[in-house]
Nucleic acid binder design. Structure first.
Lengths: 400, 400
DNA sequence: CGACTTATTATAAGTCTTGAACTATGGTCC
DNA sequence: GGACCATAGTTCAAGACTTATAATAAGTCG
């Protein structure tokens, strides 16, 4: 409603965005098809595609055979028009990856981080080093980079990062990185970037209203409303993990009691299993994997608890957001879901209203943990699409 | 993102909407001020206001004194351009009210309904009768009515009403009413219409991201995201009352166990008090009023439970939606909140994450129960604003 | 009464979409 | 193999709209 005023020039920008979006998301298309799909006249499509080709964003991609008539020329986004970089800042690693414009992976650099070296300075240094290395490896100059998307473990607001679990309380990461590069930066919560990846390339393709959950050691969610991330007043929406599911329940690392995260997050589940006498490897991921593979009475009990609480949480999501699809993501979500999905569905049905539940499908995610970096890389691309292919002028940009 | 294609003509429509919206929501303005506020050039403002005046939507409203220079002519929305009607279909009544375009009340008709006469036929009959009576009383003909908004106890989808609590499962209320009138109809959940009223005229004025709760006998909520109601894939978003707050908790009338509604809805609260030995009047509203006024140990205990659960529920809303404001509404919400608001705030703080909580204010609603009908009447007005003052051509329209 | 100030309207220039006419490029059929 | 047909894509005049600028209207002040 409150989009800026409209000038006749914005029409062109909007139509460029329309056309480019179709080309990006729905593969190669001829001008003719573009006219049908976008509703624009053929003349306008010609003009718009002409500009896009002149700008190098779009290229011709061969003909399609005709049976009587001039053959269609296919157009597609030029993968080499720009490089985008996605960064995944996790609690134990920093992963930097470079992609072409169509998000094919060009280069990867990974740093392991010890929790005690997890200062913002160290992280920033790793990001910049990874960026340099990836650019060298993919043969791109600074000017070729459309932007760098960074998925972080916490909320991002005005370029400041608030990550309770890593002890960041208002870290000016954007400014710190700005000292090392002029490339446009896009900071966002890792749950959101993973959700974005799943939405474009995974289980959320073509869905307009979705909730993508991210269950790892902690628990988050990314809400998509009408194809656009729902952020709330300061970008902090979707903090699903700290929904209370039990009055005076288990203590959560956030300090509260009874948070969902304490019941279905990897740490909570493994701790629970151990506290009941189960033995599993020390490493959290190995522990959860072993638990999910076990068929003892104790394992079954613990997993039943997980399914119940996950069902409650998902039921609430369905009631509150009325999504078309709920996607179970994150490494722990994938592990737990692979065994518990039917149980979780059943529990969710018990706790959601009938109609919204019937309209929502509950599915496993299709991408692995690398979706955080991939999704981060979609951020500059999304901006490019929204701008209709015009490269950003101001180099500063955040998710806030 | 997926708004229809843009033609050069839509510019004018968009600018008409812009101007009209400012005039409606921000009182009388001169053309000069309109140009500043909307960002349009003075010439365009002249054109647009000229059309609006010609259409009768806007009228001049006197001059403002000048100190040297031509005085500004104030423009405002013409209250008598059209009549709008709001209907509140509750579980025990049907309330029909007529308003002028600026939503000043012109006429009111109320029917009491017994639960056993609560068939859709009866309701439709009452609505049509109330409509006729209100129009006569306000001296308006059918053609003068911009539209009728109807707030219902349940979800609305494609003109069909699903209200579990009144036993409506896909009632084609719109079609039934269509047989009795040609006036455009707007059906929506009563929680949404009340929220809309609170947003325009109550505690939500000027807020872009809000959650307005409606606590009566049942419990619902209306979510406003970026000034627009959040609906989800089928208009069923915001079903807050059936969020699970206790595993295997109290049975709810929806059939599930542990729903929030069973803990903070009027019925749940009063039942709980009675089950612990408290005595209150038979009438639900009188009962709750008496309970809130009591200062016995038992009353305090029951109310403390209510505050705890309300805090959990509101904390979850804050975590998930990251709103700027949470508004406690509905007759029971108003009653309970008047005594418990500080306790509820405290409990919500305990269960929400720090940052989102700090950004959200929790307030009582400012409008009474009549907000359902008032909010319903905003629906046709909102459509008029969005259309830039053009009366709808197709007479059929729903919230679905 | 005339200079000055401010609000509103008229006018000219430029951008954009559309729709129709027009060009390009292939297949088909005799 | 050439005339004819079908489909794709381009060009161009017409119309709608906005902005900037100039002109006009309507007051105040000395």
């Amino acid at each position: 409603m409150h989009r800026g005023k409209l000038t006749v020039r914005d029409l062109r920008a909007g139509n460029r965005a329309r056309v480019l979006r179709v080309l990006y998301l729905d593969g190669p298309r001829s001008r003719h098809e573009l006219a049908e799909v976008t509703g624009l006249s053929q003349g306008s499509v010609s003009n718009v595609t002409g500009e896009l080709i002149a700008d190098g964003v779009v290229v011709e991609a061969g003909h399609v055979d005709s049976d009587g008539g001039r053959p269609r020329v296919l157009l597609r986004v030029n993968p080499r028009h720009a490089v985008v970089v996605g960064v995944d800042v996790g609690e134990t690693h920093v992963l930097v990856e470079a992609f072409d414009l169509t998000l094919r992976r060009l280069a990867t650099t990974k740093f392991a981080m010890q929790p005690d070296t997890h200062s913002a300075d160290e992280v920033a240094k790793r990001i910049l080093a990874g960026l340099r290395r990836c650019l060298t490896e993919s043969g791109a100059g600074q000017g070729d980079v459309l932007g760098v998307g960074i998925g972080l473990p916490g909320l991002v607001e005005h370029g400041l990062v608030y990550g309770q679990t890593v002890g960041w309380d208002g870290v000016p990461l954007e400014r710190m990185l700005r000292a090392g590069t002029d490339i446009p930066l896009h900071l966002d919560n890792g749950a959101n970037t993973a959700g974005q990846a799943e939405l474009w390339f995974g289980a959320g393709r073509g869905i307009d209203d979705a909730v993508i959950t991210l269950i790892g050691s902690g628990v988050g969610a990314s809400v998509i409303a009408e194809s656009v991330p729902y952020r709330g007043t300061s970008g902090g929406a979707g903090e699903w993990g700290h929904t209370t599911v039990a009055l005076d329940g288990r203590e959560c690392r956030c300090g509260a009691f009874g948070c969902l995260e304490a019941y279905i997050g990897a740490k909570g589940v493994v701790d629970r299993y151990r506290s009941l006498g189960g033995t599993v490897p020390a490493d959290q991921e190995a522990a959860l994997r072993s638990l999910v593979a076990s068929d003892t009475a104790l394992a079954r009990q613990v997993l039943r608890e997980v399914a119940r609480h996950a069902g409650i949480g998902i039921g609430s999501l369905i009631n509150l957001f009325n999504p078309e699809r709920v996607i179970l993501g994150g490494w722990a979500g994938l592990l737990l879901g692979s065994r518990l999905l039917p149980d979780i569905r059943e529990e969710a049905a018990r706790h959601a209203l009938r109609r919204p539940f019937a309209q929502a499908s509950i599915m496993l995610c299709e991408l692995g943990p690398e979706s955080v970096a991939l999704g981060a890389a979609t951020l500059p691309v999304a901006e490019l699409l929204a701008a209709g292919g015009a490269r950003p002028v101001a180099p500063i940009r955040t998710a806030g």
